[in-house]
Amino acid sequence: MARSRSDSPTLFDLPVRPDFQMEAGLMRDGLAPVAGLDEAGRGPLAGPVVAAAVILNQDRLPEGLDDSKRLNAQARDRLFDVILETAISVSVASLSATSIDASDILRASLEAMRRATLGLCTAPLFALADGRDVPPGLPCQARAVIKGDQRSQSIAAASIIAKVTRDRMMGRAAELAPYHGFEAHMGYGTKRHRTALTEHGAIVRLHRMSFAPLRVDAPADAETQDV
């Protein structure tokens, strides 16, 4: 039985760092402006999922753009400022833990990307979205790009904006609930976070109650509280 060839890039297909080739090709085809879309926060037990849409200025491409996960916090913060200074347009949108629980994390992530795209002050003619799915309801043509944050500079820029924005939001949450340590783990299910859940309970509207171990049908002894 014949197998279909995967559209996932192999290790040797990926550039050392993302480049602007996809965007340049689309622009040559008359599809400018091109927006890059990405999200941060699909895996954590707490906090929102945050998406960003970025239209880069091809004449002022920031140096050092990369997948936000391959950059340290200092590099991300520096690039965050550079992107805001040089990009044609930047937009951010987030969906809360409550919205995630009412839907599911994939749908919430795609909806956040859609909202971020709609928030751009310059309307794109094409969007490159990180991952396997094109967000439904985009106002332009689009393509899903697997490992896009390692292939496209526009998507990499969006990943940095989304990541830094979400980290700062979780830093604010840490001020309201210091016993959970959000400033260290950003809501991910680390040992420290799970211990805090056992000792202090979950926080209504901040923790994702549809995620294990918080889910009602999941084995957990964490209580809930409001702040």
Rank of each mutant, 00 (worst) to 15 (best):
L65F: 10
A52G: 05
R60V: 10
A73T: 11
G64Y: 12
V54R: 03
P48K: 05
A52R: 03
K69G: 12
R70Q: 14
E63D: 15
P44I: 02
D67V: 08
S68K: 08
L45E: 01
L61Q: 13
G47M: 00
V49Q: 04
V54W: 02
K69I: 08
S68L: 08
A53M: 05
F80P: 00
L79V: 05
S68N: 09
E63K: 15
V54A: 05
L45M: 06
L65W: 08
L65M: 12
D67Q: 09
D67R: 10
P44D: 05
P48Y: 04
V50Q: 02
G47L: 01
S68Q: 10
A40W: 00
R76D: 05
A73N: 13
A75G: 12
R42A: 09
V49E: 04
P44F: 02
R76Y: 08
D81K: 13
A40L: 02
A51M: 02
L71Y: 07
R76Q: 08
L79E: 02
V49R: 04
I55H: 03
N72F: 11
A52H: 02
P48H: 06
A40H: 02
N57M: 11
L61R: 14
A73V: 11
G41L: 00
A52L: 01
I55S: 04
P62C: 12
A52S: 06
A46T: 02
A73Q: 12
A73F: 09
D66K: 08
V54F: 04
V54P: 03
R76N: 08
L61F: 13
A40Q: 02
L56Q: 07
A53G: 06
P48A: 07
L79M: 05
K69C: 12
Q74T: 13
D66G: 11
D77L: 09
N72K: 14
L71I: 08
L56P: 05
L79D: 03
N57D: 15
A51K: 01
A73D: 13
L79T: 03
A51D: 01
D77W: 07
F80G: 00
D66F: 08
R70E: 12
A40C: 08
R76T: 07
V50F: 02
L45K: 04
R78L: 08
D59T: 15
A52V: 03
G43Q: 05
R60N: 15
R70K: 15
D81F: 07
N57R: 13
V49K: 03
